[in-house]
Computed example of a mutant assay.
Amino acid sequence: MHIPATLVRGGTSKCWLFNQVEVPADRDALERLLVAAYGATDPVELDGVGGATPTTSKAAVVGASPRTGVDVDYLFAQVGIGTGAVEWTSNCGNCATGVALYAVAKGLVPVTGDRTRVVMRNTNTGAVLEGIVDTPGGVVWHFGDQTVPGTRAGGVGVGLAFRDPASSPLPTGHAAQELRVGAEAVRVSMVTAGAPVVLVDAAGSGRTGGESLERMGADVPWLRTVRHTAAPLMGLARPGEEPGDAVPKVGLVGPPASYTTTLGEEVGAEEYDVSVRMLSMNAPHPAIGLTSAVAVAVAGLLDGSVVAGVTGGPREEWLRLGTPAGVVAVRCTDVQGGVPRRVTVQRAARLLADARIYVPDTGRPRAA
């Protein structure tokens, strides 16, 4: 069998997008289809369209939304690599950037001048996002010169805003607290904003927050233990139960320091406010997921959080995050009681291909 799909780059991720009318509505059948299409039982995803990294093994199913005030709904899928499974519990802001451009390019949302607004609902989490797609001259462009940290390639500019991302940002009621991880006390902020995230005070754990990807790789087992300890406190797992790989997300935060990005660019300590190093699906993220960036920015508004501890107190409006790929600026606006109504990041997207993916029979349920 074969299925139509569009490959997009959204920010620093690549994502195959499927029209909801072209794929099964049943979640189990859809998961079998994606596992087969991506070759997701193989750790290198050689016999499929998966990219064999957490940032390139993603999918979304997109369709017109039945909800008033929302243009499109999208179901996000983080396709496992070598696991033969799909995580359905999270959202991806980078893929949402691609969804916004796709919605305009495919006529799901009409062009409205030099900029076109697309309101999207992530059906995994219920989050509502707004993409402002650059459409200069009332035209949908396939190429652009807007860049983002992590790639020198340009794309079509998309301003991505998360609406009301943090109605209750502190799932435990504490801006920061200590977790007992083995024999070690680890100071963390557990924040639900954009996504459920565990932010570790790097300095208090003998780290800097500016670790290399190689060092982060060595810390994966320790960071996984931190997130497993935090998950029940955040209501994401039962005590003793291991959470899924997607949420809560986990990472280190620390003070600014000069460093060299993964593209070899020098960044001075004065160019950003807080160092951030995150995991994605148990691997070091080469930049930062946008849902994680939202969580860090919201934590920066909360007095006593590990982020506010780095910045010297709550920071409103802009917070500049030093990531392995470079500096990502996040803006919180309409802040009420320490909680923003909107969190915005400037991104870029590009449609890469329209294709027919040939899916082997293993994508269908096997006879008993």
Rank of each mutant, 00 (worst) to 15 (best):
L263F: 10
G113K: 06
G363R: 10
E317Q: 08
T83L: 01
S13K: 01
A348R: 00
V306L: 01
E242C: 11
A175Q: 06
V345R: 13
A308G: 02
G159E: 09
A60F: 10
A203Q: 10
A185N: 12
L301P: 07
A203N: 15
N122Q: 05
V307G: 01
Y272V: 02
G322N: 11
A230K: 04
V197I: 02
V70H: 12
P171F: 14
G194K: 02
Y272A: 08
W318Q: 06
G326V: 01
G51H: 03
P4S: 15
L321G: 03
P360N: 03
P284L: 05
G338H: 13
V345E: 04
D361G: 15
I288Y: 12
A60W: 08
T41G: 01
G155T: 05
Y74G: 05
L30W: 14
T147G: 12
C15E: 02
T97E: 07
K106L: 03
E265V: 14
T53I: 14
V345T: 13
V70D: 09
R320I: 09
G254H: 02
S212R: 07
R227V: 03
D354G: 10
L352W: 02
Y272R: 06
D134C: 06
D71F: 10
E184A: 12
M281Q: 10
I288E: 05
V86Q: 02
R342D: 01
D273P: 06
L302C: 05
E270T: 05
G244W: 02
L170W: 08
A96T: 06
V253Y: 03
A185Y: 13
G159R: 09
V109Q: 00
S212Y: 07
R67C: 14
V198A: 07
A349F: 00
P255S: 09
D28R: 15
G48V: 00
S275I: 05
S168C: 15
P360E: 10
V158M: 04
S168T: 13
R163T: 10
A349E: 01
E31H: 14
T6F: 12
V148W: 15
L223M: 08
T147A: 15
Q20D: 11
V306W: 03
V156H: 07
V8A: 04
A153E: 11
T6N: 12
G150E: 12
I81M: 08
P110R: 04
F143T: 09
R224F: 12
L213G: 08
Q177M: 13
V253K: 01
A161C: 12
K14C: 00
G235Q: 00
D354M: 13
T260S: 08
Q20V: 10
N282I: 09
T229V: 11
I132Y: 13
T147H: 14
A218C: 08
N94I: 08
P136C: 14
L213R: 09
G63Y: 13
Y272S: 02
V294W: 05
A348Q: 03
D245R: 04
V276S: 07
A257C: 07
T192W: 12
E87D: 11
V310L: 10
L129T: 09
A59C: 11
